[in-house]
């Protein structure tokens, strides 16, 4: 997809966030249990975002003996940015899933969970290295 096409697709999906009547006008109202399950998944993503945000604060506040101020700030900002991404994606995925359920389509596939998992694993490993070498040094 071209950059322009991507931009238009993004604008399209953000438009959907604020247009409940457009989502409601399509397909049939599903069993309420599906909607509630979708809502819980949304909330779980919001909590994931909160965990990343909390982790950002924790890195800046509790790793003072291990990292210089700039590295701490960079890591904290990266985690906070991850939280922001998770938040946006939570809403986007929720709307798209709701739409897919209404239309009887398969749920939207996404690379996001895998990317997030890799990112968190890398950050975790980096933290382990930092803390271990911080003690050794």
């Amino acid at each position: 997809m071209s950059g322009f096409g991507r931009l238009r697709a993004a604008r399209e999906s953000v438009g959907l966030w604020f247009a409940p009547e457009r989502v409601r006008s399509e397909g049939t109202t599903p069993d309420y249990r599906f909607s509630l399950a979708n809502e819980r998944t949304f909330l779980a993503w919001i909590r994931t975002a909160l965990a990343l945000i909390g982790g950002g604060f924790a890195v800046d506040q509790f790793l003072t003996d291990h990292l210089t101020q700039w590295v701490r700030a960079a890591l904290a900002l990266a985690l906070l940015a991850g939280g922001v991404l998770c938040c946006l994606r939570a809403v986007n995925h929720w709307v798209r899933s709701e739409r897919a359920i209404r239309l009887g389509r398969s749920l939207p596939a996404s690379r996001f969970p895998a990317l997030l998992a890799v990112l968190v694993a890398v950050l975790g490993l980096a933290m382990v290295v930092v803390v271990v070498f911080g003690w050794a040094g």
Partner: peptide, 27 residues
Amino acid sequence: PEALPNRWAVAAAACTLLLALCGAALV
């Protein structure tokens, strides 16, 4: 129960976004 209205989902995400932005400013 009714499904979660769009506006509420967006509002919940916006509240969390606000916390992240406050955090970024503080850091």
